Computed example of a mutant assay.
Amino acid sequence: MITLPAHPGIDAAIDASVARILARAGELGPGFLALGDALSRATRGGKRFRPALVAASFEAFGGDPARTPGLYPVAAAFELLHTAFVVHDDVIDHDTERRGVPNIAGEFRQRARVRGADADGAALLGEAAAILAGDLLLHEALRLVAFADVDPIARERLHALVDDAVFISAAGELADVENSVLTEDATAEGTLEAAFNKTAVYSFQAPLLAGAVLADAPETALQAIERAGGQLGLAFQLVDDLIGAFGTQEQAGRESGGDLRESKRTPLVALARDTPSWARVNDALALAHTGPIAVREAQVALEQSGAPVRLRAVIYETLEQVRASAADPALPGTATVLLEELAAAVEGRIP
C-alpha cells in the first residue's frame, strides 16, 4: 500500500465515531454490543491511506487545518467507507478471516458455535453480523459528512462525492461478481470498467476531490484532480490485479496467487482470453484451487500468454496519463507534486 503522512486528527475522528457506535450498541443488548466490539476491531490498524489522501490533497491546495474543523471528520468518513466495503466484500467472498485473524463474520461464527448453533446457523449469523456491521459503517460515514463543520456549498459537494463513491463502487462490485460467474461475458473492456468502478472512485478520485473541495479549489482545478484521481485509481487496481496473481505473500498479504485460486476474472485474465494460449490458461485456472503447484502452472500459463506484459503496458500508459493531468496549469505546484509522487508510488508496486 502507498504510505502518506499520518494525521492524529484523523485517528481521533475515527475513534470518536467508533466510540459513538459502541455507546449506542451498549444500549441495545449483548449481541449488538458484541457486534460493536467486532466492528471496532475491524477499524483498527491499516495505513488509513484514503483519509490521509483527503488531508494531503487539502494541504496541496493550500488548505489550513486550523481554519477547517470539518477536515478530519470528512477524511475519517472515507476510512469508514473503505472498512464497510471490505466487510461486505468478505461476505461476498465467503471469507471468515482477514490477514490471518477472524473477521466480523468469523468472530460471529465462533460466537454462534460456542453458544450451540450448528454449522449452517453459525454461517448465517456470521454473514448477517458482517452485513449489519458494514451497514452501520456506511451510515456512520454519511453521518460524518452530514455533521461536519463546513459551509453548505462544500457539504453539498461532499455529499455528492460520497454518493458517487457508494453507487459506483457497488456497481463495480456487482460487475466483478458477474464476471466471475458469467465467465463468457468477462471481456477486457468490461473487466477494466469493473476495476475502475470498484476501486478508483472511492479510493483515489473522491478523496482527492474531497480535500480540494474543503480547500475551496477553483472549478478548473477540481476537474483536473478528478481526471488524475480516476486514472490513478485505475492504475492502482490493475497493479493490485497483478499482485493478486503474481505478487509475493508480503505484497498480497496472503499466499501468492490468491486471485488465481479464487478464479477471479480480472482484466489480466480477460486479456489472456484474447490470445491463442487461452485454452491452456483456462484449463490451468480451473485447477488453480487445488494447491500451490497448480497455482504455479496457472502463473506460467498466464506469463506465456503475454497477458501480464499487455496489462503492464496499460498500467504504464495510464500512469503517463496521470502525469499529463498533473501538469495541468490549473493545478498548483504542490498538487502537481502530490500527483507525481502518487504515480511513482503506484508504479513502484508493480510486480
Rank of each mutant, 00 (worst) to 15 (best):
H7C: 05
H7D: 15
P8C: 01
I10A: 02
D11N: 14
G29R: 00
D37T: 13
V54C: 05
E59M: 09
F61G: 04
A66N: 07
H82V: 09
F85M: 14
D89W: 01
I92Q: 13
H94G: 15
D95E: 09
T96D: 12
G106R: 06
F108A: 05
R113Q: 13
R113S: 14
V114C: 10
V114K: 10
R115G: 08
A119N: 09
A119V: 15
G121N: 11
G126P: 03
G126W: 12
E127V: 13
G134Y: 04
L136Y: 09
E140S: 08
L142M: 11
R143L: 10
V162S: 00
G172S: 01
L174Q: 14
N179W: 14
S180I: 08
E184Q: 11
T187F: 06
T187K: 11
T187N: 05
T187A: 09
G190V: 10
E193H: 12
A195E: 06
F196W: 14
T199F: 11
A200D: 02
S203G: 02
P207R: 09
L209Y: 13
A212G: 09
E219Y: 09
Q223Y: 07
F236C: 04
D241H: 03
A252I: 06
G253W: 04
G257N: 01
G258K: 02
T266Q: 02
R273G: 05
P276Y: 05
R280K: 07
L285M: 09
A286D: 13
H289R: 06
T290G: 09
G291Y: 00
P292V: 00
R296W: 11
L302Q: 04
L302M: 10
E303A: 08
S305M: 04
A313S: 10
L319P: 02
A330C: 05
P332E: 05
A344P: 15
G348W: 10
G348T: 05
I350W: 10
